[in-house]
Nucleic acid binder design. Sequence first.
DNA 1: TATTGTTATACTCTATAACTATA
DNA 2: TATAGTTATAGAGTATAACAATA
Lengths: 159, 159
Amino acid sequence: MAERRVETDGDPQVGGWPQSELDDLIGYNLKRAYVITQADFRKALTNDMSGPRVFSALMLVSDFPNITQSELARMLGIERSGLVAIVDELEALSYLQRTTVPGDRRVQALVATKKGEAARQKTLKLVQEHEERLFAFLTQDERDTLIGLLRKIRKFGTD
Amino acid sequence: MAERRVETDGDPQVGGWPQSELDDLIGYNLKRAYVITQADFRKALTNDMSGPRVFSALMLVSDFPNITQSELARMLGIERSGLVAIVDELEALSYLQRTTVPGDRRVQALVATKKGEAARQKTLKLVQEHEERLFAFLTQDERDTLIGLLRKIRKFGTD
DNA sequence: TATTGTTATACTCTATAACTATA
DNA sequence: TATAGTTATAGAGTATAACAATA
């Protein structure tokens, strides 16, 4: 059996890592943490929404009324084409409406319905409880630090 | 600790965030940072390997000679079934060999070839340079902190 | 010409279930 | 019965390219 233990000395790290130089790469650790969080998140979404990205879209439509699909796609960091199915789903759930904009008939401004706003609040609470439970082992300071660093990657990492 | 502070009404965060309560969720920030890193990573992999996970598998096979596919899958956090294509690819590249184990003919122990070891070293260097470039805006302290927090999620987040 | 929303298409990553050959 | 590797399949999530309507 393969068992090798790399000595971690007085290294302020967790759980006997690193076992491999892989464990010293930000990208690898980012992916592993993302996969875990994402899987747990999905279980927390007992709602009618199919996945996290639908929730994210609803949040932004609610926070930015009359946002266009192009703007929303840019904010979410995805392509316009990928957004269509998401908006379709939210519209089918009656959580938002595509509305025409006077002056530019190409644009479809998105507006959350009352039902959508209610779902947003309920789901956000669900998600916040999910994070509270999943990240219970992190102090508030650690969470703030983590979020700050991840935001930095979002801000500076996009060329 | 040496964090650059952009004051947005007392909030020690970066870049005018949060714009939405979405920006205060760890899961969302994790995903956004992951997508950015992953896309850049993929561009850095000018190698013959098809993607990041193939690289990760090669790293672990190299670090843990004679590891079984089940053990490797567990270390990577994926299912055994998903590993087959990865090992197939590495074997087709002559980067590793499936070897039989005396005593248990079900098991296929994985061993990296010399060619595989060379590819490992070359690609690891490529990836490290990629991270150095992509995360140039993070201090070494910040990177260590980030990796430590992400490892904690990997350790404690898997129930 | 450029942009918005859209469709079609393909690719990556992952999971589940069932099979086979061993144990 | 249980385990290791495998196959088949499906489902998210994403990107690229092309199109129609409109600017």
